[in-house]
């Protein structure tokens, strides 16, 4: 199982080999294409720089996606449960969600200036729609009989929300969270290239200006690694919280 997973790293290994070969053949001058060893050295010599910027990026995503979670999940539960709310919001949600958050960077800077605020606002928006839509989807997917059981038991609305609607939607909410974290991570890097003066996006852009291509490569590697790690963490959390779902779904992730 672990071995099969590891096989997924094959393309990456091939890329690394191609990279090394390109360096040996001097396809590009070393200023543009640093040797893998040189990039590895960045993690030794510039640990503090990389770590600082990585932490800034991660913190922004945590805050931004945390906010989208707090807003999207209760809202999605309500919209999914109450027809009227759904009617009032459906089209607007469809329209809003097709606007890429990155296209709002200029507006965000105009209204919020340069700094954490515009970046977090954009991450919030990137996470909001996938979380909202998946939560609504989760509520819709509830077996009709289960709602009938609750009605027959004359359960109050709060109990229905807490004990039935929310747990039934959790798998879908976690799917939304995975998408949200992914989207938020994409947005943070882009936003940092324009709207903030710290974070991995900023570090990469700055490295370009100072001809530190090794730092650019190191930054990209860190971005990929953190993205993978975040996704795995959400997956593990989902497995923990939705343990009851094991054996219900055909494929075990």
């Amino acid at each position: 199982m672990q071995l099969r997973r590891a096989l997924g790293l094959m393309p990456l290994a091939l890329l690394l080999i191609a990279w090394e070969v390109a360096v040996q053949l001097k396809v590009y001058p070393p200023v543009l294409l640093p040797a893998p060893e040189k990039v590895a050295l960045v993690f030794v010599n510039d640990t503090a720089t990389v770590l600082d910027h990585a932490l800034s990026s991660v913190a922004r995503v945590l805050v931004g996606i945390g906010l989208s979670f707090i807003v999207a999940v209760p809202l999605g539960l309500m919209i999914g449960r109450y027809r009227l709310l759904d009617m009032l919001t459906d089209w607007s949600i469809q329209i809003f969600r097709s606007v890429p958050p990155i296209s709002l960077i200029p507006l965000a800077i105009l209204f919020l200036g340069i700094g954490d605020k515009p970046a977090i606002a954009l991450i919030f928006l990137s996470g909001l729609w996938p979380l909202l839509i998946n939560t609504i989807f989760g509520v819709r997917g509830i077996e009709r009989t289960l709602i009938k059981v609750a009605r027959a038991a004359r359960a109050g609305e709060f109990l229905v929300m807490k004990d039935i609607i929310l747990p039934a939607s959790l798998p879908a909410i976690f799917t939304g969270l995975r998408l949200a974290v992914g989207a938020g991570w994409l947005t943070v890097v882009t936003a940092e290239m324009i709207a903030v003066k710290s974070g991995l996006g900023y570090m990469i852009l700055n490295a370009q200006l100072t001809f530190r291509s090794d730092l650019i490569f190191a930054g990209i590697i860190v971005i990929g690694a953190i993205g993978l790690l975040a996704d795995q963490l959400v997956r593990i959390a989902r497995g923990r919280v939705c343990r009851w779902q094991e054996g219900l779904t055909a494929t075990n992730e």
């Binding site: 009938k148 059981v149 009605r151 027959a152 038991a153 004359r154 039934a168 219900l248």
Partner: peptide, 30 residues
């Protein structure tokens, strides 16, 4: 729904996220 009647559903109607114990407790909890 009347409080006097209890229903057993054709397709069980069990909450998959609750243990047997919690499922059986649900009507009382309500």
């Amino acid at each position: 729904p009347s409080p006097e009647a209890a229903i057993v559903f054709q397709d069980h109607g069990l909450f998959p996220w609750m243990t047997v114990q919690k499922n059986v407790e649900f009507n009382m909890k309500a």
